[in-house]
Design a protein around this nucleic acid. Structure first.
Lengths: 231, 231
DNA sequence: CCTAATAATTAGGTATACCTAAATCATGGA
DNA sequence: TCCATGATTTAGGTATACCTAATTATTAGG
């Protein structure tokens, strides 16, 4: 056998593959390629192929896989992936709200714990938080039944310069970026004007009513999602 | 490589071996045999031998091991073991006090999470709880520096029948037993009279000032530790 | 329509942490 | 003292989840 827990076929690795497929497939659940998974997960493409074959061949298949054609989550796979996302976002909210974590530290902790908490733990922290629907980064938290409301927000990289928006969410992908953004006032709910977009510097934006503009790299901009300003 | 995290040499398995050695070695740190470890951990004796050899041969050895002579924790091993015990007991306290877990469910959750929480998590829950020194079962919580106050309590199985005592701690080993004991009023702080000890039935005890006696199996009695009654 | 480049898979290996079965050690009683 | 028995270790295997190198598909450009 091996690392005891993995024996149940719900290992941390499996969870991470499922999450990655959910995330890379986007809201419309496109097929996901081995290479993109390998990149996202930081493993060799060959390892991905192996894992996908295993997941597809399981008694309850977690993915639909055809060689050279990428993967899709099966119903069971999607259920599990959404459960992990729910865990992740509830834990982040809990760490932020109850344990007073700095926002940029919640992701790393949640990334580990999401695989190991019980149903009871999930239920109790959800209750304690009043069954939140949005996490501290602005991401929506799937329900216990595995429903997730679709984001109708748009990445900063896809809006027309000149407009005024409200920040919907800021990705927790990179703690350092997140910390910098927070320091600039870029957090969910803040008003943001996109001034101009330059191929080299990236984006020039300003926050609230301030006339002070500052620059955002293309990468940082991709972490920010916007909705049209109410005003 | 393999299960990613284990690569750091601080795997869940290693943690569990160290905890078991700490526990079986008792307060005076006796040498612990392979067989007793195997029994305690529910693995084959051969697996224990393998693991002990690995732990002893590590760059920073976690145990002192001589073939056929059992093991002792090294300083580093003891430090890690106490850290895990601290995690376990803080988590149990947190689940009980903050998340309102039923007492008999805290052990299982803590048993998993103890391996995965960060220093920050540990520090935050400790702060939230006011740096408790005793967990809900009555067990003392090691300090951050790895100090644990010695228990001067005695197992129920070792007191003379006839006396009156205060319950110091009740083991969390078995959720079912714990639930039954709780239902009978057996929990830390309660007063307990040990009436008689019979080789077959076990122990006859009563709680508080009640004259109602009931029986405790030898096994359940072993889970209860007492201190002399103040009165 | 063919081929070169890229994507993906297969083949063969590593380390962890288990297992069973077969040695070997250690000891206590004759 | 000697050896039988139980404790322990060694030998040889399994599954997970990785890796690299070699091979095979796919697809897009000429």
């Amino acid at each position: 056998m091996s690392p005891r827990r993995p024996a149940n076929s719900n290992s941390e690795s499996v969870d991470n593959y499922l999450k990655a497929i959910l995330s890379l497939g986007g809201p419309e659940h496109r097929r996901v390629t081995s290479t993109s998974l390998a990149g996202h997960l930081g493993v060799a493409p060959a390892s991905v192929t192996n894992m996908l074959q295993k997941l597809a061949a399981a008694p309850v298949p977690l993915v639909e896989y055809e060689r050279h054609r990428g993967v899709l989550l099966s119903a069971a796979g999607k259920r599990r992936a959404l459960e992990i996302v729910r865990h992740h976002r509830l834990i982040e909210t809990f760490l932020y709200e109850v344990l007073d974590y700095p926002i940029e530290e919640v992701h790393e902790e949640a990334e580990r714990l999401e695989h190991f908490i019980s149903e009871r733990f999930e239920e109790r922290i959800a209750a304690k938080l009043g069954h939140p629907r949005i996490d501290p980064h602005g991401h929506s938290i799937p329900t216990m039944e595995g429903e997730m409301t679709e984001q109708n927000s748009v990445p900063l990289t896809e809006v027309l310069p000149g407009g005024t928006f409200v920040i919907d969410s800021v990705s927790d992908r990179d703690a350092h970026t997140l910390k910098q953004l927070k320091a600039s006032g870029i957090k969910p709910g803040a008003q943001l004007r996109v001034r101009k977009k330059t191929p080299l510097e990236g984006y020039s934006v300003s926050i609230g009513r301030s006339s002070r503009a500052f620059n955002l790299s293309r990468e940082a901009a991709g972490d920010i999602r916007l909705v049209p300003s109410a005003k």
